[in-house]
Amino acid sequence: MSASGGNKAIIAALTANLAIAVSKFVAAFFTGSSSMLAEGIHSVADSGNQLLLLIGGKRAQRERDKSHPFGYGRERYFYAFVVAVVLFTIGAAFSLYEGVTKIVHPHDVESPIWAFAVLIFAIIAEGFSFRTAIMESNPLRGKQSWVTFIRRSKSPELPVILLEDLGALLGLIFALFGVTMAVITGDGVWDGIGTLMIGVLLAVIAVVLAIETKSLLMGEGASSEMEQQIRAALESTPEVDRVIHMRTMHLGPEELLVAAKIAVSHDDSASEVARGIDEAERRIREAVPIARVIYLEPDLDRSHTPTA
């Protein structure tokens, strides 16, 4: 994912959420609706999350140093994980608490026209943000399903924004459902039910994000397609007989570490082996440009060594 593409989706989501948060709090003040209050907190949490993603992207661009010889690329994964924690602790926990409180102690929704007007505005704004995230994701997604893209993407920003925007749209629908039912029936319990639904939704999204970003933080390897390209590049090098074993790990979304033990002929001189390693590295970088850190260890091809 290009930084500009990810930032465009983040800024679109941040702009929409700040405007929506203000309108939701105004509606919550005039209506006394817990669904609207929960949605306001949800938008504030989302806005904070988008700021965290921007900070993570900026910090990840720092040059490698003595204490971090492989650079800071994985800071993007850390901040994406923090987003999941914030979404759960602030968004989900508050909504669940507020929903239970309003179910136990319900009260009527006052001036519902405020709630309906704000919810319609918010749905339009979130729809714009969601559309931007989809458009930025499509070139990277290719023919993958959305579920596969979110699970396999090594760039955390777009999957996070996609899930946040989807959650925001569904949350608005839940809030609209709760407020509408409360107005129709005259029973404020429905408002609490809508709030509870928002809390459960945010908790589910937060757990999904936490699982996916935890995997990236732990150090994910290259995709199977990328590993095949690397192996093919190595084995196409004349001085390399075969790949004995290979390990890969993402140091960041656009930086891959490749470590491999390669078999060379026992008749090759040291200079020939060195030239072969240089050529193999060139071919790997040509096939997989994000392979920035490459370590190749030559070994004798014992499977073809003549026996006495």
Results as ranks from 00 to 15, higher is better:
172 L>G: 06
228 Q>L: 10
164 E>V: 13
194 G>K: 04
194 G>R: 04
212 E>G: 01
206 A>G: 11
219 G>K: 09
228 Q>S: 13
180 T>W: 12
222 A>F: 15
183 V>D: 04
158 L>Y: 06
199 G>R: 12
199 G>S: 15
191 D>H: 03
150 I>F: 07
200 V>K: 14
215 S>I: 01
164 E>N: 13
174 F>K: 04
165 D>S: 10
184 I>S: 09
149 F>V: 12
173 I>N: 01
215 S>Q: 05
183 V>I: 09
175 A>V: 01
143 K>R: 01
170 L>D: 00
203 A>W: 11
157 E>Y: 03
202 L>N: 14
210 A>R: 08
191 D>S: 02
203 A>S: 14
145 S>M: 15
160 V>H: 15
220 E>N: 09
188 G>I: 04
219 G>P: 08
156 P>V: 05
215 S>E: 02
220 E>D: 11
194 G>D: 04
203 A>T: 11
167 G>P: 02
217 L>I: 14
171 G>E: 00
226 M>V: 14
144 Q>V: 04
183 V>E: 10
207 V>T: 08
228 Q>F: 07
216 L>Y: 05
178 G>K: 07
198 I>K: 10
200 V>G: 13
220 E>L: 13
176 L>Y: 06
173 I>S: 09
147 V>H: 06
225 E>K: 07
184 I>M: 12
197 M>Q: 03
185 T>S: 15
217 L>P: 09
143 K>F: 05
195 T>V: 00
220 E>M: 12
161 I>Q: 00
159 P>E: 02
210 A>I: 06
222 A>L: 13
155 S>T: 14
146 W>S: 11
184 I>N: 07
159 P>F: 04
170 L>S: 02
226 M>R: 13
161 I>K: 05
176 L>K: 04
195 T>D: 02
162 L>I: 13
187 D>H: 05
148 T>D: 14
226 M>H: 06
155 S>A: 14
201 L>E: 07
190 W>M: 10
160 V>N: 12
205 I>M: 12
182 A>Y: 10
153 S>I: 00
182 A>G: 08
157 E>I: 03
144 Q>G: 00
197 M>D: 05
152 R>D: 09
149 F>Y: 15
216 L>G: 07
185 T>E: 10
193 I>N: 08
194 G>Q: 02
207 V>R: 05
226 M>G: 06
223 S>I: 08
204 V>P: 00
191 D>N: 01
211 I>W: 09
231 R>V: 03
187 D>C: 05
208 V>L: 12
180 T>S: 15
189 V>D: 03
187 D>E: 05
181 M>D: 01
220 E>K: 11
183 V>Q: 08
205 I>P: 06
159 P>Y: 00
206 A>S: 14
148 T>Q: 15
214 K>D: 05
144 Q>W: 05
187 D>R: 07
199 G>P: 15
179 V>W: 11
168 A>Q: 12
215 S>D: 07
160 V>T: 13
189 V>H: 00
204 V>Y: 04
160 V>Q: 14
176 L>T: 14
205 I>E: 10
192 G>K: 01
221 G>P: 13
151 R>E: 08
147 V>T: 09
170 L>W: 01
155 S>I: 14
147 V>R: 10
148 T>M: 09
187 D>T: 05
184 I>Y: 13
186 G>N: 12
223 S>E: 13
187 D>P: 06
153 S>N: 03
211 I>Q: 07
185 T>Y: 11
189 V>M: 03
195 T>Y: 06
159 P>M: 04
166 L>W: 07
174 F>A: 08
204 V>N: 00
